[in-house]
Design a binder for these strands. Sequence first.
DNA 1: TGAAAGATACCAATCAGTCGGTATCTTTCG
DNA 2: CGAAAGATACCGACTGATTGGTATCTTTCA
Lengths: 187, 187
Amino acid sequence: MTIASRRKKQPERVRRTLLDCAAHLALEQGLTAVTVQAVCEAAGVTKGGLFHHFASKQALIDAVVAELLEKLDADIEAAMSADPKPWGRFTRAYVNVTVDDLMLNRSSQWTALYISSLTEPSLRRVTAQWFAKFVERHRATDDDPTLEIVRLAADGVWLAALLREDGGPMPDLPALRERLLAMTLTS
Amino acid sequence: MTIASRRKKQPERVRRTLLDCAAHLALEQGLTAVTVQAVCEAAGVTKGGLFHHFASKQALIDAVVAELLEKLDADIEAAMSADPKPWGRFTRAYVNVTVDDLMLNRSSQWTALYISSLTEPSLRRVTAQWFAKFVERHRATDDDPTLEIVRLAADGVWLAALLREDGGPMPDLPALRERLLAMTLTS
DNA sequence: TGAAAGATACCAATCAGTCGGTATCTTTCG
DNA sequence: CGAAAGATACCGACTGATTGGTATCTTTCA
């Protein structure tokens, strides 16, 4: 660490590092371990530095979750616009984004944080409204019992991914994706 | 009223109260709010009293989760023994127990704690092995892609239940149960 | 220069946990 | 029986470490 020693000051990079370290800590050691001191230490910044970027610890955590939801938002929107068939479009996008993220292992840290956020009531409220927004918006094309089951199964995959590294059972993701997608075509 | 309730000191009852209060706190205010002091206050016991029953805060939390998993274990076992058809028996039991618990609202506190436990790595390990044990044990009757989707959907229902009280979307549980159970009959 | 970025030092509050003491219950034994 | 002896249950003040947060100083950079 201690990247910003000799080099130019890179405030935006420091901010990013703080967000990443907070997310990583939540994954590795649980939300309880996300203390200001721990985040600073991991990011190679002192507390003064952190509080320069974030008004409070809560602001930091809120920012992490907000970023996560924005990322999911964008990914889903992108997946939807590449899908010509209206019926079940949102559900397919939801499945694809979920499985893609878990397969590429690109943002497994986000995955864990997403679940973690559900335990803290303040963050839970944000996530609940994010969910409600999507379901409401796509009621015309995705309001169907079978599609709901597909989305619930995708949610279950998030949980399975959390348990994966601790010896939990992990489904065959590509095969699972195919099956879930197939379920969205036959109504 | 039993004889024990007339005694002045009721250690077993105090122990129960501590466990319940810890679980309730985790639900209402998140795992972060589960401090020794808060649990003592809620239970009407001093810190000395709590540490008489539990060697550490972690031991208290571990006990809560262990009790939860034992309860789930018993419920699933009971549901399975009432199911004559071998194929998908475990999966049906899993669905029924999940939906029953959420519908009766009997153990919504357990629900939240169950999810919360996934964020703390130590508890996550316990839960992961609990899961793996079940999947392994019923491989002969429940190792099937469709059944796996059903179980994943049931897991998703836990998440949905968590978000329910914060404005999240909640499925029609009885209808959902029927559909999931139906999926376990046709292979 | 002057504003942004970050370091250092410090604070009150709170954390998990300890410890000596007391009240209550159970067991032992005359 | 009944009282002494010992174990269990519980209290509440205390501790050292850590918490999130602030005030102040120094460095960096345009």
